[in-house]
Design a protein around this nucleic acid. Sequence first.
DNA 1: CTGAAAGCGCTAACAA
DNA 2: TTGTTAGCGCTTTCAG
Lengths: 343, 343
Amino acid sequence: MAKKTTIYDIAKELNITVSTVSRALNNISTISESTREAVLDMAKKLNYRPNKVASSLTSGKTYIIGVLLPSAQIQFFASVIHALEKYLKSFGYSILLYQTNESLESEKNGISTLLEAQVDGIIASLSLETEQDISHFEKVKEEGKPLIIFDRTHDDLQSPTVKINDEQAGYLATKHLLDKGYQRIAYITTKHKIKIFRERFEGYQRALQEAGIALKPSYALFGELNVEGGYEGAKQLLKLKDAPDAIIGGDDYVALGIIKALHEKGITPPAVGVIGFANQNFSEHIIPSLSTIDQQALQMGKECAKLFLKIIERSPSADKEIDPIILDPLLLARESTNRKTRS
Amino acid sequence: MAKKTTIYDIAKELNITVSTVSRALNNISTISESTREAVLDMAKKLNYRPNKVASSLTSGKTYIIGVLLPSAQIQFFASVIHALEKYLKSFGYSILLYQTNESLESEKNGISTLLEAQVDGIIASLSLETEQDISHFEKVKEEGKPLIIFDRTHDDLQSPTVKINDEQAGYLATKHLLDKGYQRIAYITTKHKIKIFRERFEGYQRALQEAGIALKPSYALFGELNVEGGYEGAKQLLKLKDAPDAIIGGDDYVALGIIKALHEKGITPPAVGVIGFANQNFSEHIIPSLSTIDQQALQMGKECAKLFLKIIERSPSADKEIDPIILDPLLLARESTNRKTRS
DNA sequence: CTGAAAGCGCTAACAA
DNA sequence: TTGTTAGCGCTTTCAG
């Protein structure tokens, strides 16, 4: 492969200087139209390709933004990645991806990696393990770089956030079941102390309280957030003397596990109501279709991107507080809860 | 925020030169243990963070590898991303992501973006639109950078590839249905001329031929690769006088659509057999569970990563041919095809 | 084992 | 409107 062509090559061919070339290429200030065209032509002719690494070193901007999240295999996050990349790309930004796999240590390494890569900012969602220690996130801000936290946020982290109203999500799910006439409503969620799961549970409590139904401790299960967790939890619930007539799953996978356990007992929703969270792609299509609370992943990704651009483009001095962006959860009522309402 | 500390700061504090600091930090050649420790201590004390952009500019290596694929929202690709990032991270590489959204133009822009970012190599899977024009991929090789194509490969592209044996995948699916006693087997796939879909279809043909069954043109449908496509296709097939007793879906979403259409007619698999491709996460959990051909997404991602490392680490002179890596498709026989075998 | 110095490709004052 | 000139932070010969 031949030597790469640089702006020096263009300058030499045209008998001008590199600064002129640079200005022409970046369409900066007042460049005579003629030289601009000449430069562009020559650039094309010489197969010039700008070296962003070099320009980053001088300008201090990489136009790369770091995305740190638990796992691209979780569909919610995949959707956020999708939306982020799609939107930011149109503003000239690229996405550098780092997965924590729900590990705090990995999360810390991720922040370091992204910071060393000189990203222009970081958009992150916390790992399940992250509880007290959030010093690594503080470092991002110490370096003066925008940090946006989405979905899995943290109380002690003073950063712009984008999330849905999780308390409302839990409330909606529970209220929906109540409206459908279910009375003995159980809840299977994660044992991890992540804020959003706690909030959803609070919404569940509020809905019950409003309906004047006492919270039964045996109806609240804390296990793993996956099919297996839902399956095991549901089996346990079905053994109760006073078995629930509806079960809320911490996410759609948990709900799937619940349905599986019911199926083994010869029960098909909505005979026992089942609802999940996340609106995974399969939820709509399984039989019976699964009621769920949509988390607005795509919308959330887009809002993160917009927020990032807003922050990056304002002057650093204008350091006024940024209001958290709270999206509304969306109840998707489908067959799995569609019991005939009592009259 | 205070000025960032550089190796100059460390050098000054220690009364040594930057070259020594650089050597110590990179653990290079023969550095006296004492100065190495001193440098490391001081680096920590001053909160030093290496600037990869600067080092990339001199060394010519960014330790970033570009990943170009249709969409992170397609679970197969999300899994590949997951595996790629997970594996490459342990070798110090990061992932710069670009989605083509199945558009050729976007694919071209993606290659440019990644190249400008000076990635050390590109791992890509073609968009549905990419047919004749693959000049953008040629450019990657012209720049002397490794280019690995996975899953959606292209005949004219002389690059290392990682894929599964798609012909075999199509064959396996069809053979499985035949073994289960299905005779009138239809196939709903995409209208796009992508190699892997063509190959799967060829496997379908081979299996039928082996069984001495003539290919019925009315049984081969070419539409969209999604739930809707499967639904519409199946509805059309069910109208035939000689309706099929089994339908192969071009992917699991198509299969989902097929099941939906059957459901509307009061038919539940395996009464009519249904099988898909990809083993999407929901396939195992829907009722009835969906038979499918696993594409080994995680394995594929890992093989891509390994291949990349192998290529990048060998001397550029050792330019011997790289054999394509062909993974075996995996038949996952589940309820949707589990008809009692004829005796 | 360490220092001196050049330079990676580009941007951005400051001049002209 | 264009040129001159420093760097950005680091690596990497070449000397010593």
